[in-house]
Design a protein around this nucleic acid. Structure first.
Length: 426
RNA sequence: GGAGAGGUGGCUGAGCGGCUGAAAGCGACGGUUUGCUAAACCGUUGUAGGGACUAAAGCCCUACCCCGGGUUCGAAUCCCGGCCUCUCCGCCA
């Protein structure tokens, strides 16, 4: 959520940001108009309240001195009725403004390239050598099915399409990967590990910005009005909702493994094969709450923490600075990490590292008291560290061998109980 | 699921219709004292919105004692609904 003062003072800047982000539902002029009306109503209402408070005191004084107060009571009651009718309008207007405000996206940072879609993103880094094969590398679904570690047919029997069933060393590989990630982030990068609820309420979803915009993309439990987490960002960022932290508490670094549930409404027919795009996947998330003046430095560090996982796995990747049009609703600046999948012959997004500045903090009302004793909103950041299925794809496709087996990278072997190769059972 | 108890400021905790934005204590901050620390003493100590002012500081007004309604001239205080916490019983991995 943007500060209403920013909209009042720099409406053109906000409008430009909306255009650059291709957000259509935000209406700045309407907000400004409502805001002006709203303020004059508040003024009128508060003046009446002031008058009522005064008269009430007079009533009390009269009664105490034993005089008759009926006329004054009658007069004050009328003021009260007037206040009530204004307040009814005021509440409606409040809600309308709040709703409009929640639909205004964050303003991109100054160094974010203006652009339309992923084609306008700036590749800022490439890491690793392109691996060459002396045989045509297979896509992961063929590798996984042949090795009997991935079973998409049976998973759709259980649930439907877009759900993963891993078996044997495939399941073990999944567990090995998120264990490795959590260990690296807690041991080497200073994050505190959390294990959170996988169902969250509407307030939490609104706080991080998934709602109201993306409700159709979320799995919802109507009987309790709860949502399955689309990312650990939601429970983790909401931990400190409505809290005032001390500057001594900051920065806070959290990491959490959760499954992520996404309906992927609107992306039917895209990436339907294999496990590139699924409705449920595992992810290790990194979340930071920091002081505003450090947030961009913290973003670079967060990005580095996520990259580290690909580096130790020896997987080729690139980093893109997203353009305005490709960035999410709540982000001010965002980097994507794309890993190379040789069998698919393309890059896959495995992480998105974003600085939200105070956009989420304002929604979740997390402030901190500085050395000067003043209250300020914290800045929030998050990034995947990393999303599992696509990391699995990269591992399977990168380390596939001519006979269809998979060589397990050294760093994963201890997590695999010493297994060095996933091979077909004889 | 059934029966009770409760939610007040950073914390503990009083207040139960007007004198209460809220006693007292603790904590925190500033000061006096001190070789240093501690103690003692003095003082300060909520947030948000609106208004006039060029802006900050300061000033005025309004709101906030879990949330939302109601009663009343007037609500932290009375009534109704919701949420949350705790205790007991039942059920259960």
């Amino acid at each position: 959520m943007l500060d209403i003062n920013v909209i009042r003072n720099y409406p053109d800047k906000v409008k430009q940001a909306i255009i650059n982000k291709h957000e259509t539902s935000a209406n700045i002029d309407l907000i400004l108009e409502l805001d002006t009306q709203h303020r004059s109503m508040i003024f009128a209402c508060e003046q009446l309240k002031s008058k009522r408070n005064e008269k009430s005191k007079e009533v009390n004084a009269l009664k105490k001195s034993g005089k008759d107060a009926t006329a004054l009571i009658e007069e004050t009651r009328n003021i009260g009725d007037e206040i009530k009718s204004i307040e009814e309008n005021l509440h409606g207007m409040d809600a309308q403004i709040k709703d409009l405000l929640l639909r205004i996206p964050n303003i991109p940072a100054d160094d974010v390239p203006v652009g339309k879609d992923a084609n306008d993103n700036a590749i800022v880094k490439s890491w690793g050598e392109r691996k060459s094969f002396d045989f045509p590398p297979l896509p992961h679904w063929e590798l996984g099915t042949n090795l009997n570690i991935l079973d998409m047919e049976r998973s759709s029997k259980i649930t439907g399409s877009g759900f993963i069933l891993l078996k044997g060393l495939g399941a073990r590989l999944e567990r090995a990967l998120f264990s490795l990630m959590l260990d690296v982030h807690t041991r080497d990068h200073g994050y505190t590990e959390l294990f959170t609820p996988f169902l969250v309420n509407r307030t939490s979803m609104t706080g991080t910005g998934q709602l109201p915009k993306l409700e159709d993309d979320m799995y919802h439990i109507p009987s309790d009005d709860l949502f399955l987490v689309p990312t650990a960002e939601v429970p983790v960022t909401n931990i400190h909702r409505d809290e005032i932290l001390s500057f001594k508490d900051l920065p806070l670094y959290y990491t959490a493994y959760t499954p992520c549930f996404r309906r992927e409404a609107g992306s039917y027919g895209k990436d339907t094969r294999g496990i590139i795009r699924v409705h449920q996947f595992n992810k290790v998330e990194l979340v930071k709450l920091v002081r505003p003046e450090t947030s961009y430095q913290e973003l670079e560090m967060l990005l580095g923490n996520a990259e580290k996982i690909l580096q130790i796995l020896g997987l080729e990747y690139r980093v893109a600075k997203l353009c305005t049009g490709d960035m999410s609703f709540a982000a001010a600046k965002c980097y994507d990490i794309d890993v190379w999948a040789p069998g698919l012959n393309k890059f896959l997004e495995v992480s998105s590292c974003s600085n939200f500045e105070d956009f989420q903090a304002r929604r979740i009302n997390v402030r901190y008291r500085g050395e000067d004793n003043k209250l300020r909103f914290v800045h929030t950041l998050n990034g995947s560290g990393l999303a599992l299925p696509r990391t699995v794809i990269a591992v399977l496709e990168t380390y596939q061998q001519k006979d269809g087996s998979i060589a397990i990278p050294d760093v994963l072997q201890p997590y695999m109980g010493g297994v060095k190769v996933i091979a077909k059972k004889a």
